[in-house]
Each structure stands twice: as C-alpha cells, then as structure tokens.
Design a protein around this nucleic acid. Structure first.
Length: 728
DNA sequence: GCAAGGTC
C-alpha cells in the first residue's frame, strides 16, 4: 500500500520526492502539485503553511451582541476552520489518505511545522482513513542524503511540539479577539472622530507600540545639556587632521575651565606630536545572511520598509532568483557546493571581474555564521542577473538582488585592512589626541562597498610638529535618542522576542495601517496622538500585558509544553486566568478612560487629520474649468478616486477609471484638449493590460453617445511611445 | 471588522 507524505510547502515536497526516487507530477489545481514517486509508491502532498486558522464561532460573530469577556471564559468561543485557500489542499489530503496505509508528516522541524502537520493536516487524513499509520519525518536539511537517511529512520509524531503551536495560536486568538473588541467598544466615540473602524490589540503589536511610545516619550522629555568641546584643526600637506582635547567633553560645571584653556592656546600655531602609533587592523568579510540579518541590512541600505523588502525577497524567491528567504541559517552546510553559483557570476558586467579574481586566488569557501538551521541555506542568489534583466518586476527587486548578490560574493572575499594612526599631541602643554583610520586594502569592500565605514584618505605622518590651522571652542547640546526606523525596529523586536522573522515586517506595517504610528522624515517612526492616547490609557490598567515580559512569560510556558512539563490545557488555563484578571481590571476602570473623551476628542481629530494628510499626485496641465490650477488625483480612504482642482473654490471634478494603476504622463499632453494623458495599468494574473485616457476627453465622452473616450478610440490622435501624436 | 503564525 502507498505512503502519503505531507510537507509544509511546495518546495519541500518537491525536494523530498526527488530524493526518494524518480518523480511524476500530478497537477491537482493551478497551484497545487502532488509529487508521486511510483518506484516507492509514495505521494507527497504539499501544504501552504497553515491551512486552518482560529475564528470566532457563530455565537460570537457579532461585535455588538456578544460579550467579549466570554471569548476568554467560554471554551466554545473560537474554532479552528479552513482558511481561504485551504480547500484544494484538504481535498488532496483526503483523496490520498484513502489510497494510503501510512502517513508521514514531513512539515518543518519546528513548533509551527509540527502544528501544521499534526493539527492542521493530520485530522483530515485520519478522518478519511481511520487505520492509517502515522509517522514523522524529522529533517535537519533538504539534502538528498539527509532525506534518504531520515526516511529510513522515521520517528513517532512530536505531539508536544504540535500542541505548543496550538497553545500559541489559541492564546493569541483569545487575547487578540477579546481585547480588540472590548477596547474597540470602549473607544468607539474616539474612533468615530478619527475615522478608524476598530482598534486592534495583540500580544506582539501592542507591545511593540508600547516600546515605540517609550522611545517617543524619552525623546519628548529629553532635556538637552550644554557642553563644550575643544578641537584643533592641524595641517598636514593638503589634509586637515582633527585633534580633540583629552578632557572633552567639558560639562556645564567646567565651562570656565574650557574657556580658560581655549584662551591659553587659541593663538598657538604649533602642535607637538608626543606620540605617534600606528597599527594595522583586519576587517573580516561579513557572515552569510539569514532572514533577520537580511532585513536589517536591506532596510538600512535601501532606506525602505521591512514589509516591501520582504515582499521583494519573496518575489525573487518565487521567480527562482534567490533561495528561500525565510531561514534562520547564517552558516552554510559543509556540503553546500558554491562553485556553480560562483561560476554564474564570472561573466557578470558588475560582479564578473571580482568573481574571476576569487577563482584565481582560489577563494571558494564562504565565511561562516553561528546557526546552521538545516532546512534552508542562508539567503543565496541562484542565478546571475544583470541590472537590466527583464526578470526583475520592479526597481526594488533589482536593488534587493544587487545587495544580496554582492553580499554573497563578499563572503568569499579577502579581508580588508585598516590603518589606524593614533596621535598624542601637545598644544602649549594641553593634551590632544587624534585618531585617523584609513583603508589600506579594500578586500571584500570592493564588491560590497555598502558595508564600508567612513575612512580618511591614506597618509602617514612622519614629522614631529604640525602647524595649527585653527583651534575651536564649540558649545554643543546633548542629543535625544533617534526615532525608530524599520532597521532599528527589527533589531528591537528580535531582542525583545517579539514576532518571528516572517511576521515582524507585517506587524510594523499593521501599526502604520491602523494609524497608531506614522512615518516622519527618513523612514522614521513616531507614535500618533491617537496611539499615544491609547497607550497612556492602557498603561493604567494593562501594563503587565504591554511589556515584552508578557511574551517572554508566554514563551516560557510554551517551552514547558514542548518539554512535556505542562500540558497544553494547563498552560491555556494559566494564561486565560491572568488575562481575564487584566480584562476585568480594564472593565472596572474603563469609566476613567471614557470620561476623558470629551476633552481630548477635538484635539485628536485635528491632529490625526494633519498626520494623515497625504500628498496626492498632481497633473502638470491646468484644470479645464478655471484654467489656473493643476488638478490632484485624490484617493479616499474608501479607495474611491477622482481628479479635483487643487483650488478648492473651483470645485471641478473629473472621473478616472475605478481600477488599475494610474501614471500621469508628464512628458506629453492630449493634442486635442491639452490635458495630461493618463496611463492605466491593469494587472491580471498572467498578463497586464495597458491603456491610455485623457481624463478631460474621457469625461466629455460620457455626455455624448456612442464612443468611449479611450485614446485608442480617438479619431485624430494616438499614443505612441507614451506620446500623443497625430494618427497616421 | 479582530491575533500571530505559516506560505504564494
């Protein structure tokens, strides 16, 4: 009788099947492939991560007519049901379970993997075939050798690991659903004012918001302190060498001391070099990239959001340009053969000469990080693509690939060398130091210059004296800590155990979407007035839940389930009890919150309006009515869009197509009426459609009968190479 | 209408 193997994702299913023998692919639906190994009588059915999710039962569907408190107390408040795309997967599990007498769970070798295999998929398998034998395939990598070996040594299912994931899901659902509803109901008068539909509360997101609140508070309450520094600019050939007084910084109490020193030396023209040491330092190439490190690096270099970088990596992976982007490995398996990948880059326009040099110098082993998670290698470029390649779907993918490819090549590079010169200097008996760091050997920086620090030009100092160009006494102020960026938020979340490598970018985005945070200059995050009000109120009643300690507390309990020290049920009872107490505290004290609403409502409304004012794209052509002002392409929060004259008094509006991405072509205008031509891109699953309209002509066409005012229907002109030209 | 966790 055949064997059914269940994997977490398509990629793993394919690899497992291929390792066990020649494969026949069974296309079950457009996206679902089952891999058959006829020689071994095996069917490998992939899943797509979790196929079930917790939802409120019908009894608790209504937000108004059900009691949020009962979501915690009533064991039937939530239920695990198939998600939107689960059906083909479930059907495949049932069909193949009926044919097989053995089921091997081969989902990822971690807590969520065990939960997906043993608690999402297996119940369907067993329901379809009560006598099926259940085993688990515990893979520490997807290499053929490992798969073959472990398939011969199947283990009994790791139920406790699966239960750990189940407890995590139940705890998050119960806490999230009950508190989101209760807090939404409480804050409803405020939500109406600021056009929010609800306020979401969750173990991870609310804790993160609290940390952002704390940082902003620290910045707000920061009291700058005055201090003074004495610096000397010394001349050496064409360079300026900056030296700092050894007693820097002079705090407020030492102001007079600083000024006295400055008075004493300000006209001195010679600096004596007392000591001149130099040392060479080696800078090693970076270590391979796991997901967290890649996100931190890419958001820092590209100055873009974690979410968009993660999306770009995922698309590159789906298009087989990079390896799997969700990995904890920052160390390659000793068996990983880098040669074919490196070989790819030899002819590359930008990376080629560096790569050829790697081969010449026989530098073919990468640096190594700390974790070999097994299932996937560190993030690796699989193919060599030029920046002009049409395989990139957008500019960001291009940039992400460039950084990842260069970083990968840097792993094999030679170390860089720094020259560090330290000078001890005396200016009229006042001691100064100067540190000069220059790059003497660029090594791997050649391919990955984005990893470089700032360096001074290379020079050596052999003289005993240097002329003083100027001596400066500067009054300065201490600076507050910076606002968080995507990069620093990712680091913070990792440090505080908030979220996972895959969910962190989404959680950062959720806070933005829900108007709890917003971006100020340079991708920096600030809590909104609304977020601040919310957290300030919650601190009064829910501080234990806001602190990241709560997640660590839950984590420890989950670990107890995994290690069989506690049962899933016991842990859920413990967490429910603690959270119910917090919930009741909120209920008992919520009058102290609602009583404040009248006094803060108006202020919140206006500040939130200011914060959310978007910059809408503008036409270069003028409004057809007033002929004075450009028009704005407005998109409302309900996703309706239209053109409006930027002069509010003019009140001219033009319709635009409801769907498709609009680009205002600024290099051409409609030769018929002079208005901008709009390019509309409609994305479909397989191909995209592009068409053009002039909004003025398009709107005019509504008043006439017959024609639709697309540019393609224009009798006199047509769009050619994004220019409006006479029809030939 | 809600969480956080997988994956496309």
């Amino acid at each position: 009788m055949p064997t059914l193997i269940v994997s977490e994702k398509n990629k793993a299913a394919k690899r497992i099947a291929e390792a066990l023998g020649p494969v026949t692919v069974i296309n079950r639906s457009k996206y679902l492939k089952v891999y058959q190994v006829p020689s071994k009588n095996i069917y490998v059915v992939p899943l797509r991560g979790h196929i079930l999710e917790y939802r409120n039962t019908d009894q608790f569907k209504s937000w108004i007519n059900s009691n949020p408190r009962e979501i915690i107390t009533n064991p039937n408040s939530i239920d695990k049901i198939p998600n939107s795309y689960a059906n083909p997967y479930i059907k495949a599990l049932i069909d193949f379970a009926k044919k097989c007498d053995e089921c091997v769970i081969a989902t990822d070798a971690d807590v969520e993997g065990c939960n997906i295999g043993l608690f999402d998929a297996l119940p369907y398998v067993i329901k379809a075939n009560r006598n099926i034998k259940v085993k688990q395939l515990w893979l520490s990598s997807l290499e053929k050798k490992e798969i073959v070996l472990k398939y011969r040594n199947l283990i009994s299912p790791k139920w406790s690991w699966g239960e750990t994931g189940e407890a995590r899901a139940i705890i998050d659902a119960i806490i999230g659903f009950s508190s989101t509803r209760e807090v939404t109901n409480t804050f409803r008068p405020i939500l109406n004012e600021i056009n929010n539909k609800f306020v979401s509360i969750g173990r991870v997101q609310t804790s993160l918001l609290y940390l952002i609140y704390l940082r902003d508070l620290e910045i707000e309450q920061f009291v700058p302190e005055q201090y003074w520094t004495i610096t000397a600019n010394l001349e050496h050939k064409s360079h300026i060498i900056k030296a700092v007084h050894t007693k820097n910084p002079f705090i407020k109490e030492k102001e007079s001391k600083a000024k006295a020193i400055f008075q004493k030396i300000k006209n001195e023209k010679v600096a004596l070099i007392l000591n001149n040491t130099k040392e060479s330092a080696i800078i090693n190439p970076p270590t391979p990239l796991n997901t967290s490190k890649a996100l931190v690096l890419l958001t820092r270099i590209l100055r873009t959001s974690a979410k968009s970088v993660m999306n770009a990596m995922n698309s590159l992976y789906l298009n087989q340009i990079i390896s799997y982007p969700r990995t904890d490995s920052d160390k390659y398996s000793p068996n990983f053969n880098h040669l074919p990948y490196l070989e790819n880059f030899k002819p590359h326009m930008n990376y080629g000469s560096y790569t050829v040099k790697l081969f010449k110098e026989n530098r073919l082993s990468p640096t190594t990080g700390k974790v070999y998670a097994g299932d996937h290698p560190p993030i690796t470029p699989l193919v060599s693509l030029e920046q002009t390649s049409s395989k990139f779907e957008n500019n960001l993918q291009k940039k992400v690939y460039d950084v990842l490819a260069r970083h990968y090549l840097a792993l094999f590079g030679k170390h860089a060398t720094e020259l560090r010169i330290k000078l001890r200097i005396s200016i009229k008996d006042e001691l100064f130091t100067s540190r000069l760091v220059s790059l003497t050997q660029s090594g791997f920086y050649e391919i990955a210059p984005f990893l470089k620090k700032t360096y001074q030009p290379i020079f050596e100092i052999e003289v005993k004296e240097l002329p003083v160009k100027e001596i400066l006494l500067d009054e300065k102020e201490t600076q507050p800590p910076p606002h968080y960026t995507d990069t620093t938020l990712l680091k913070l979340m990792e440090r505080e155990h908030l979220g996972t490598k895959s969910t962190r970018p989404t959680i950062i985005m959720i806070l933005l979407d829900r108007k709890l945070t917003y971006n100020i200059a340079k991708n920096r995050f600030k809590i909104t007035e609304w977020g601040k009000f919310l957290i300030q109120e919650l601190i009064q009643v829910w501080l234990p839940f806001l602190k990241p300690d709560f997640t660590r507390f839950v984590e420890n309990l989950l670990e107890d389930i995994k290690e069989k020290r506690k049962t899933k049920e016991d842990v859920i009872i413990i967490v429910k009890k603690i959270f119910l107490a917090l919930f009741d505290k909120f209920r008992n004290e919520k009058n102290t919150i609602t009583i404040k609403f009248d006094s803060v409502k108006d202020n919140l409304k206006t500040t939130m309006q200011q914060t959310s004012q978007k910059k809408f794209p503008q036409t270069t052509s003028k409004c057809p009515t007033c002929k004075n002002h450009p028009m704005k392409l407005i998109t409302t929060s309900q996703k309706k869009r239209f053109l409006a004259c930027s002069d509010r008094n003019c009140k001219t509006y033009l319709s635009v197509p409801k769907t498709g991405r609009i680009t205002i072509l600024k290099s051409t205008t409609c030769l018929k009426c002079g208005f901008n031509v709009f390019k509309i891109l409609k994305r479909k699953v397989n191909k995209s459609n592009i068409y053009y309209i002039c909004p003025k002509c398009w709107n005019d066409s509504f008043k006439e009968e017959g024609t639709i005012g697309f540019c393609s229907n224009c009798t006199d002109y047509q769009i050619s190479k994004e220019q409006c030209v006479k029809r030939s």
